[in-house]
Design a protein around this nucleic acid. Structure first.
Ligand code: SF4
Ligand code: SF4
Lengths: 149, 149
DNA sequence: ATCAATCCCGACCTTTTTTGTCCTAATTTC
DNA sequence: GAAATTAGGACAAAAAAGGTCGGGATTGAT
């Protein structure tokens, strides 16, 4: 099943939230967890991963929290994805050849690797700022609907 | 983890194999399982799914087996993928809205849906015949290497 | 008609991955 | 020092993927 993991979804929500927070403000994990109904401890780990990847800055102690290390305009989907799940790999032989029983007789490895490469580049094209723009679009659309109703 | 499932890999191997088999020949599941060291019963299910999706034709009884229902040139990665795993969905709320605790407060649904759509179109661009071509390329590359060595 | 080869399919078990929880530091502010 | 907060390891629960088994149906050969 080619599906976004919950962690990545949590990470995206967090980043988007901080993008829309006041400049320089610190957002706490507890606050995010409450807002988006996410298990706090789990969200914590996601935020830590984003921190380690240099996407977020963190501040310990009371009055601490997280904020974007760089503006969201410079981020793409792939950044968040790989920060949380590690490098993007379409097939497991990429990390450990011996973890696959078919390695010796596999007829699809090379072409699939090629696809992975192309896909990775394509994923680099999804800018997170589209999340912001999309939101405006939706609002606009709703306004239009209201006008028609 | 955004990774191709084993079933899809098995399906791709099977399709590629039949593409390279003699015109009109029937390939059996047992034969494929032996060649690619795949658990026979599991491969069976994959082939059945491909059959239901109209990618393969099957023949019961002795001398039976599978063959491509249409030439591989008309197939794309997405065909095999969806035949085996069902429709491509990047997020779970697409199938069952209530399966997600964050549905009511989700801030990323719309943009992610948009990405799913684009990705789906992009996946439609990966033609399976590239698997054939790639194979030739590899052989060529190896020849070149041999020449240099 | 029987038999062997083969596809079909549901039920089940096992392993792996994902998701979630708990608990204990370490850091900072008040 | 107490409270708020991040950091992170260990573990439990749930879900998904992978694999196995057994019974049935269809076909061709003997
Ligand atoms: S089947 Fe082929 S492509 Fe898939 S993991 Fe094994 S070796 Fe890699
Ligand atoms: S978090 Fe949002 S996008 Fe993800 S499944 Fe729930 S509703 Fe859909």
């Amino acid at each position: 099943m080619l599906r976004l993991s919950k962690r990545v979804e949590y990470g995206l929500m967090a980043v988007l939230h901080m993008d829309q927070a006041d400049e320089g403000a610190w957002t706490t994990a507890a606050e995010l967890a409450a807002t988006y109904q996410i298990p706090a401890e789990l969200l914590g780990k996601v935020l830590q991963a984003l921190g380690r990847a240099g996407i977020l800055k963190s501040a310990h102690g009371a009055k601490g929290g997280y904020q974007l290390a760089r503006p969201m305009d410079e981020l793409v989907l792939c950044d968040v994805l790989e920060a949380i799940e590690g490098p993007f790999r379409l097939v497991r032989c990429q990390e450990e050849p011996h973890s696959c029983d078919q390695y010796e007789v596999c007829s699809i490895r090379e072409p699939v690797l090629d696809i992975q490469q192309q896909l990775l580049e394509y994923l680099g094209g999804f800018e997170l700022k589209a999340f912001r723009l999309k939101k405006r679009k939706i609002n606009k659309r709703q306004e239009n609907l209201c006008t028609t109703n």
